[in-house]
């Protein structure tokens, strides 16, 4: 009986870890240079129209919940700075790091890390192993943000 438990555990691990690993490895590798990620996460260039949808979609970027945006929409949040002109204030590489993982710049920030898997605690079952945005959604969002000048 005492032996059975570790055996079952080992089996469980064997079954579950490859899945978890393969999800983890879905994160495309990126290189941080100072406070930016200079190279795009994907080979397909970002699409500003799709990026705008990502920014407004409640279940994806949901930027408008915390940031005032230069769009016609009721009830824009004000926890973070307004996004109007953000494409002028930052380079695309700087914005990329801020969206991928703002906490690398300011560990105290309340802005979620939109492309991070490690170091999270008590993630809801349906989101375990998934990033908030896909790499392509990050690039699309960036393409849109760079139009805000």
């Amino acid at each position: 009986m005492r032996l059975a438990i570790p055996a079952a555990l080992a089996l469980l691990l064997a079954l579950s870890s490859p899945a978890a690993l393969s999800r983890d490895t879905q994160l495309v590798p990126f290189r941080i240079v100072e406070d930016s990620i200079p190279e795009p996460l994907t080979s397909q260039p970002g699409d500003p129209a799709r990026g705008r949808e990502v920014a407004l979609d409640r279940s994806r970027g949901n930027c408008i919940t915390c940031h005032n945006m230069p769009v016609e929409a009721d009830f824009q949040g004000n926890l973070g700075p307004p996004l109007d002109g953000v494409g002028e204030r930052y380079s695309i590489g700087e914005l990329r790091l801020r969206i991928v993982d703002m906490k690398r710049i300011n560990p105290e920030s309340n802005m979620p890390s939109f492309y991070r898997l490690e170091g999270l605690h008590g993630v809801r079952r349906d989101w375990v192993g998934r990033t908030i945005l896909t790499a392509q959604e990050v690039e699309d969002l960036l393409a849109y943000l760079m139009t805000l000048r």
Partner: peptide, 14 residues
């Protein structure tokens, strides 16, 4: 005070 969830927020964040 523990940050939790995919959004990585503590109660006090809000």
């Amino acid at each position: 005070n523990t940050r939790r969830g995919q959004l990585d927020l503590r109660c006090g964040s809000c």
